[in-house]
Each structure stands twice: as structure tokens, then as C-alpha cells.
């Protein structure tokens, strides 16, 4: 069953004095991802992988094309429709050091989405956060520290726990392990795979590391200069 379907998606950047120069970051891309499946996205740096991930989520506005999520065309979503997407489609970032607000304690970072979308009652919040950090095997004592006091691997786990709290159906993982050392990288990948089977999450897994993508993905798309040049 298809969860996400992207049709001829384009994201152009115009530059120059008269906006004549066009940079085609994403140039007419189509693909589908099934429920609980992973599409790996491989390509050289600068080929538009990350832009594609953000455009699919509508963190960037597409120039043209359509994105269907769970059968609905989300390209024109506004207001509360768009807000409801917040819990269903999420993103995990490359650099764990900058993906958490340095002035927010870990507890608040994990609680933020729960509070924002009223996903649990105030009195059950503590228990829910306990569950979440256990799901990503972090120790409780880290909860009241600031991100600057944690290691890269720990921060990436926090980022995953934060996203997991919303029970998303689809996650864009933008090179989530490229800045971690190999051992931690393996741990995070195992964690993502385990969570995927447990919760039935679909991934768009962006990477330039072939073995990692091969291990994670059900299908792999190769990207070059804003276009998909092949699937496997």
C-alpha cells in the first residue's frame, strides 16, 4: 500500500539581477514509498537530495509538482491541515550537534512536540517521556541536561525520541549517521530499523554511503543533478 507518492516534483531557485539564472535543485522527480518501507536516496553531495527531502515535507515550497500523502494531495495544504501533518511527517537531521535548541533542556526538547500538538495530558507527560527515552535506550539522568553536554550519538537518539513521540508515519532521514563514528552509526541504524518494524514507519533515507543505504532500504533511488537516474 502506498503511503507517499511524489509526482513530477520541482524546486527551482532563481538568482541573478533579473532572476534569469535558474538552479534546478529538484527537477521533475517522481517516486512512491509503501507503508513501512524504506526508499534509499543516494547521490553526490549537492545533487539535491536534501532539498528533495525538505520539499516533500513542504519545509520548502515546491516550484511545481504534487505530493500525495495517504491518498491526499498535500501540496495545497494550509493552516490546520498543514499543522496536522506535523505529527505525521517528520525529519531527522544530519548534524546532531545543531538539531536541538542549545537553550532547551533535553526533557523540554522531547516534550515540545507533545505539548504543541496536545498529544498527552500534562500529568502523563513524564511517563510518556520515560517511555520514549527507553525506546531509544538513553538513560534518564540526561533528561535535565542541555544539548551541549551530550555526545553526538546521544543527541541523535534524543532527536529520534523527540520525533517518535508524535508517532509519525513517515520520516525523512537526512544522512542521520554521516557525522557519527562507525560504532555509534551502527547503533543508530539498528535503532531506526527496530523502530521501523515496531511502529511501521516509512523512511526516505538519504545518504551517500552505499553499504548503509543497501542495508536500510527496500528500494534505492539514484539521484544526479536534481533528477532520479535509476531505481534498484
Amino acid at each position: 500500500m502506498t503511503l507517499l507518492k511524489v509526482e513530477d516534483l520541482k524546486k527551482y531557485y532563481y538568482s541573478g539581477l533579473f532572476k534569469k539564472e535558474v538552479h534546478r535543485a529538484v527537477d521533475g522527480i517522481s517516486f512512491e514509498i509503501g507503508r513501512g518501507k524504506t526508499l534509499g536516496l543516494v547521490g553526490k553531495s549537492g545533487c539535491g537530495k536534501s532539498t528533495l527531502g525538505r520539499t516533500v515535507l513542504r519545509l520548502l515550497e515546491p516550484t511545481a509538482g504534487r505530493v500525495f500523502f495517504d491518498g491526499q494531495d498535500i501540496s495545497g495544504f494550509k493552516g490546520s491541515d498543514l499543522k496536522s501533518l506535523g505529527t505525521r511527517m517528520q525529519i531527522i537531521f544530519q548534524n546532531p550537534e545543531s538539531c536541538l535548541n542549545p537553550r532547551m533542556k533535553i526533557y523540554d526538547a522531547i516534550a515540545e512536540p507533545l505539548r504543541l500538538h496536545r498529544l498527552c495530558d500534562r500529568d502523563k507527560e513524564r511517563g510518556r517521556i520515560q517511555e520514549l527515552i527507553e525506546a531509544v535506550s538513553l538513560s534518564e539522568e540526561l533528561l535535565f541536561r542541555y544539548p551541549g553536554e551530550l555526545s553526538g550519538g546521544q543527541l541523535q537518539r534524543v532527536a529520534i525520541a523527540r520525533v517518535l513521540g508524535m508517532k509519525p508515519e513517515f520520516i525523512v532521514a537526512d544522512e542521520p549517521t554521516s557525522m557519527l563514528d562507525p560504532l555509534v552509526q551502527a547503533q543508530i541504524l539498528f535503532l531506526l530499523k527496530k523502530l521501523q518494524t515496531e511502529y511501521g514507519i516509512s523512511f526516505l533515507f538519504i545518504s551517500h554511503d552505499m553499504p548503509v543505504v543497501e542495508w536500510m532500504s527496500d528500494e534505492i533511488a539514484f539521484m544526479e543533478e536534481g533528477k532520479i537516474v535509476g531505481f534498484r
Partner: peptide, 17 residues
Amino acid sequence: KRAFVEAARALRPSSFY
């Protein structure tokens, strides 16, 4: 441009928030 602001935007709150 920092990732944590983008992560916050992915939660779709208001700009004011």
C-alpha cells in the same frame, strides 16, 4: 538556517512560537 529551527518548523507551529 540552523537545524534546530528547521526541526521546530517541521512541527508546524506558528512563526510567533
